[in-house]
Design a protein around this nucleic acid. Structure first.
Ligand SMILES: [Zn+2]
Ligand SMILES: [Zn+2]
Ligand SMILES: [Zn+2]
Ligand SMILES: [Zn+2]
Lengths: 128, 128
DNA sequence: CAGGAGATTGATAATGATTGTCAAAACATG
DNA sequence: CATGTTTTGACAATCATTATCAATCTCCTG
């Protein structure tokens, strides 16, 4: 919401494209989709917009096994992802258990200002 | 059948270099270290060796924020890492709590063959 | 020991995602 | 409209990683 950035047609197009899918999508794929749907948006702008959105926490970003950055528009708030390795379907999950555990184990070793990343990958019931 | 290993001087050098540090190290850095210490090992071989070791589970691999792959020789068995964002010190952590939680939440959504990745980053007591 | 099949190496080229450049276009304001 | 600011986008540059492929090394057999 609070954007220091000036809203433009291109940025809206990127955000809409992101919102049109439940899957994590790469900047390259988003750019291809935009071109295909007739939207004229430069690749650099796609990268810039996604990077800004990720920094502000408005989209989640994670790295594919090959190191490619993929983005997804998620619900607000801290959560994690359950990802199907076959079809790419994503489920957001959360809970205090893992949050408490990471905080406890970090404190136990004298670490402060802790953050964590957690991703779960499996095969969903439809793809089993 | 396709898994044929042949021990070589170069692979030993890479493994020794990995074992000489507690930090996660990139292939590029390892290659530079090897050259500096007089070992003649090609960059491609460093990448190949690390990739093989990671596939067999003999080393842990994770991605830096910039997407660079970093490797570390760890104790055997499933565990996670507590990483200092300042000095890079790494502590291996484990525990049944997070394992149970991920399995439970995956089963709850009908996912099978689940695996997970979890990394904790913070500032260690020495760097506070 | 010699020879050959097959595995390994490494210099180099190729790939591919991401970032940098910077002039042109879009925008705001007065 | 004039002017300063922000954003865009085509293109070049970067940089980690992978593909090539001839040369080299290992192991096995006779
Ligand atoms: Zn699925
Ligand atoms: Zn969490
Ligand atoms: Zn530290
Ligand atoms: Zn675990």
């Amino acid at each position: 919401m609070t954007t220091t950035r000036r809203p433009t047609r291109q940025q809206s197009a990127v955000i809409d494209a992101l919102g049109s899918t439940q899957d994590f999508t790469s900047a390259q794929d988003l750019h291809a989709q935009l071109r295909e749907s007739g939207e004229k948006v430069g690749l650099a702008t796609v990268y810039r917009t996604l990077s800004t959105l990720a920094d502000s926490g408005d989209v989640d970003v994670l790295r594919t096994g090959e190191g490619e950055a993929v983005y997804r528009k998620c619900s607000t708030g801290h959560h994690h992802h359950l990802l199907c390795r076959v079809c790419g379907r994503t489920v957001e999950v959360e809970g205090p258990t893992v949050e408490r555990w990471t905080d406890a184990v970090a404190a136990e070793h004298g670490f402060t200002d802790v953050a964590h990343t957690l991703e779960i990958v499996g095969t969903c019931s439809s793809c089993h």
